[in-house]
């Protein structure tokens, strides 16, 4: 018999290293042609940090996205980053990048102010030019300002940025501490069909609705949600590194025995983005990378209960576990 059921799961995810103390730094250099180079120490694991950090720098500098080149490949030449983990890069590297770009922009404004005989605070930057507010005719191109800075004013147009949430030591008795930058939120809905003869669970529909604070690049956020959801689906239904726990014999040693989801395993997915801006994050952004992997398991387990009335308290919901649970009902 095939029974259908639905389930939900909700939750929160902290942005940044647990307990803080994880710095990221950035450097923005304005080039002679008016473009920019952003140097950061974090890695692109596929999440797209080069893309979104370039977007943030371009926003501050009034440039096109394509005008910001990103360097992150060599530790020798990049400022400190504690790394690409803990859903931290959008927020922490983002803040460092915005600060670095603002500092570079400040130098442009100082030099442009001298050329245009205006106060730096009266200047705005747009489309590769620095304008005097309210007077579209008084402007200098960024490349001209860099030229003047370099050859007349003896100035380097480089901005540095740094962000770190201070380390918060937990109280050993109460655990009191301030362990995160901000929290993102997630809610998920799963619809499953359980075959009570074979124990197989098929996920028919999965809706993920996650809070990115501000989606710097919505398609990349969607990619994180979809990818995380499928990883969570694998954890819910098929993955177990030690299937004969605690025995380590017969541990899977290839990707056929350790099955991760393939194209054939994925249901109808809906990835939705919510934007509840963080107070301190760059443009309100929050971390999104890890959040998305957490809800499929409980949502699916709750849907299985709705379908066949049994609770599974151990993952994954393999056919064997489902059948055993039905038997002991």
């Amino acid at each position: 018999m095939k029974n259908r059921g639905t389930g939900i799961a909700i939750g929160h995810y902290p942005t940044g290293q647990n307990g803080g103390g994880d710095p990221s730094q950035a450097m923005v250099k304005i080039q002679p042609d008016g473009s920019a180079v952003l140097t950061v120490g974090s890695c692109d694991l596929g999440q797209g940090c080069k893309t979104i950090l370039a977007q943030m720098a371009a926003e501050v500098l009034g440039m096109e996205y394509e005008q910001v080149k990103v360097i992150n490949h060599s530790v020798d030449n990049t400022p400190m980053s504690s790394g690409s983990y803990a859903s931290r890069v959008t927020y922490v590297d983002g803040k460092a990048t915005v600060e670095a770009a603002e500092n570079a922009r400040e130098i442009l404004f100082q030099v442009a102010g001298e050329i245009l005989e205006a106060s730096p605070s009266d200047l705005i930057i747009e489309n590769g030019k620095v304008f005097v507010k309210g007077d579209r005719k008084r402007f200098k191109t960024i490349s001209k300002i860099v030229e003047v800075a370099t050859y007349e004013k003896h100035k380097q147009v480089v901005g540095l940025g740094h962000f770190m949430k201070d380390f918060s030591k937990p109280d050993p008795e109460t655990g009191e501490c301030d362990p995160f930058c901000t929290l993102s939120w997630g809610v998920s809905f799963a619809e499953v069909e359980v075959d009570t003869d074979t124990g197989e669970v098929e996920v028919l529909r999965f809706v993920s609705y996650y809070d990115a604070g501000k989606a710097i690049n919505p398609m990349l956020v969607e990619g994180q949600i979809q990818g995380g959801s499928v990883m969570g689906l694998g954890a819910a239904l098929m993955e177990d590194l030690h299937p004969y726990y605690p025995n380590i014999e017969h541990q899977p040693d290839n990707l056929s025995d350790y099955s991760i989801p393939t194209t054939m395993d994925i249901p109808d997915f809906e990835a939705l983005i919510y934007e509840c801006p963080s107070t301190e994050g760059p443009y309100g952004a929050k971390g999104i990378g890890e959040l998305s992997a957490n809800y499929p398991s409980p949502a699916i387990i709750n849907a299985i209960h709705d379908a066949i009335g049994v609770w599974l308290t151990e993952l994954p919901a393999s056919p064997e576990k489902v059948l055993r649970a039905l038997e002991s009902q």
């Binding site: 909700i10 301030d178 362990p179 809906e270 919510y274």
Partner: peptide, 23 residues
Amino acid sequence: TSTGSKLDSVALIEMMQTLAEKT
């Protein structure tokens, strides 16, 4: 939170309301 952090930018109720609508 149980570690004593005061929360802002919370949105779970609103998100659950929308999720219910969508599903």
